[in-house]
């Protein structure tokens, strides 16, 4: 757009007007300074999002930003933009997700994620992904690319989203992904539950993590992180949370991540996130829970989600050590990274 640069400048100015001082990282809980890792962040390029999803996203932007969604999105979807949001929230480190879902949410390639991680490799990590839409012909090639992304580009795990990528959780043809991930020591993050995006699958074999049990049992060396905890994003309900908790109780290689389900858009009354965090603690699964937001989404979302999650934890009786574990220590342990000092 001819007039894009003044608008980008204005939006950046508005967003960063109060951030001239270096950010103090970490948050304070009951007087103690804690480190924070947000393990669920999305970089991207507007042009790599399908038109229906572009319209869906634009319709959720406030007027007049919905007139220039590409510009509004570019401010936050870059590595610099994401770091800015992390700084405002006091987050030490973040994990950027690659995505290959051309039918639904679009593509954020392994190469793009690698470029964005390089903006600040001390604070940003990447999860790789792969295409599955031509699996009958391209499976070997895609697995090879995935292995390269992990071994060559330094990605620390794998990201999958069956509902977005349209493949069943119990389809053994795709289990080679879990074998590879386990062999390389790369945890696998999986979107569970429904999705609000157009064109996504809503049937249980694509959304209910119970359908992952065969894979979880067959690959005990592979870490499975159940993202969104089976949340029903369409109806703002807990969905298959109980299946996630049962799998985590029954299998030591299953972990939990409560991103997005507690956002203002998905849990407007702030009822479900506290229930989820309490259920995790009651089930004795605090040491299996990793914090993520599913940001950046919009300016301030990353910070708001962190605040809502910490509030839900403290309201559910989490000790400071338990909050510390969820916010950072479980992540560094699972991904074999050095502990982060706040």
């Amino acid at each position: 757009m001819r007039h894009s640069w003044p608008v980008i400048g204005l939006l950046s100015l508005l967003m960063n007007a109060c951030s001239s001082e270096p950010a103090e990282l970490g948050i304070y809980v009951q007087g103690q300074h804690l480190a924070v890792v947000d393990m669920h962040l999305h970089p991207g390029e507007w042009s790599q999002i399908p038109p229906d999803t572009q319209a869906f996203l634009a319709s959720r932007f406030p007027f007049p930003l919905n007139l220039i969604p590409e510009i509004a999105a570019s401010v936050t979807l870059s590595g610099e933009g994401i770091l800015g949001e992390m700084d405002k929230a006091g987050i030490h480190a973040g994990v950027l997700f690659a995505v290959y879902a051309p039918q639904t949410v679009g593509i954020a390639s392994n190469e793009l994620v690698g470029e964005q991680v390089a903006v600040d490799p001390e604070r940003l990590y990447g999860l790789a992904s792969l295409r599955v839409d031509r699996w009958n012909t391209d499976a070997d090639l895609e697995l090879q690319r995935l292995e390269e992304a992990i071994t060559t580009y330094g990605m620390i795990g794998v990201k999958l989203a069956h509902a977005h990528m349209h493949f069943r959780m119990d389809d053994a043809r795709y289990f080679g992904i879990y074998e590879l991930a386990g062999r390389l020591g790369a945890p696998v993050y999986l979107h569970t539950g429904t999705s609000p995006f157009p064109g996504t699958s809503r049937e249980p074999p694509y959304t209910d993590p119970a359908y992952l049990e065969d894979a979880i049992a067959q690959y005990p060396e592979t870490v499975f992180i159940l993202g969104h905890l089976g949340y029903d994003f369409e109806n703002h309900a807990l969905g298959t949370l109980e299946h996630c908790l049962r799998l985590a109780r029954d299998y030591p290689n299953v972990y939990l991540e409560p991103s997005a389900l507690g956002s203002v858009g998905s849990d407007p009354e702030s009822v479900n996130l506290p229930k989820v965090m309490k259920a995790i603690r009651d089930a004795g699964l605090v040491d299996r829970t990793l914090y993520g937001s599913d940001g950046p989404q919009s300016p301030g979302f990353v910070n708001t989600y962190l605040q809502r999650t910490v509030t839900a934890m403290t309201a559910s009786g989490y000790t400071v050590n338990e909050v510390r574990a969820v916010l950072a220590d479980n992540f560094t342990r699972i991904f074999h990274l050095p502990a982060i000092q706040p």
Binding site: P50, P102, Q103, G106, I107, R134, G199
Partner: peptide, 13 residues
């Protein structure tokens, strides 16, 4: 088939 370029994919419902 549906979509263009990198976003081309099979099986558009």
């Amino acid at each position: 088939s549906s979509g263009e370029g990198e976003l081309a994919h099979p099986l558009e419902f």
